[in-house]
Design a protein around this nucleic acid. Structure first.
Length: 211
DNA sequence: CTTCAGATGCTCT
DNA sequence: GAGCATCTGAAGA
């Protein structure tokens, strides 16, 4: 199967649907000749129209949330806890502030570079625990792929950041990726401040994921 | 395996 | 000034 970048229309849909359907797709990060990629294993939906957990709840428009009002597929990257970045992809019609948070990946391309970005060491020197928890968190995957606030607002179609169905030419998809997806549903992480909305079943992950 | 303190700076009130 | 869509390393079970 030939790899194709998801069309922008993929993101111009209900956010919860997009979050579910992003599982198993490939996040591809490019910087010059460098190509990094990972299979998406965990996502969460955030919908400003009615969701207290969303930064743009009730259409709140500030310098930070401005990106959430951008066209579908736009990258929304923000700093959290003063140290880590989180990557989201904007969803729904332009002007509807909503996005999917990418919470977890399995590494597929550029393992060596990602190990350097994350631990400043060769991949072969990583411990079992480091290897097992390599990209299973929103801050971890951004660190590994050098996704920073400089990526905030990147429009859909930018080579620097894209989501593919399949891996780029020359990189065979592992057989395990061809198996049918087993999707789990649960509540979102770290949004207790959102009251009742914290109970919404808007987190999705593939079996095999830890946590 | 688990819990837990501490890091660190931006965002909004 | 308070709080945050997190992570790490150390210590204990």
């Amino acid at each position: 199967m030939k790899p194709v970048m998801l069309p922008q229309a993929f993101f111009n849909r209900d956010t919860v649907t997009v979050a579910r359907e992003l599982l198993g797709k490939y996040l591809v990060r490019r910087e010059g000749d460098l190509v990094l990629a990972g299979r998406i294993t965990e996502t969460e939906a955030y919908i400003g129209r009615m969701d207290k957990a969303c930064h743009a709840y009730n259409y709140r428009r500030t310098a930070r949330t401005e990106t959430l009002f951008a066209p579908p597929g736009t990258a929304y990257v923000y700093l959290i806890y003063g140290m880590y970045c989180c990557l989201n992809l904007v969803t729904e019609l332009e002007g509807e502030p909503a996005a999917v948070l990418i919470r977890g990946l399995e590494p597929r391309m550029g393992m060596e570079q990602m190990a350097q970005n994350r631990y400043a060491r060769p991949a072969e020197t990583l411990t079992k625990t480091q290897r097992r928890n390599f990209l299973n968190g929103p801050g971890k995957l951004c660190k590994a792929m050098n996704i920073t606030r400089a990526c905030n607002g990147l429009p859909w179609g930018s080579p620097e950041l894209a989501v593919y169905d399949g891996l780029p030419e020359g990189f065979p998809v592992p057989p395990e990726d061809a198996k049918p997806l087993e999707i789990h549903v649960g509540t979102r992480i770290g949004v207790d401040y959102a009251g009742e909305d914290a109970k919404l079943p808007w987190r999705f992950w593939l079996s095999g994921e830890r946590k």
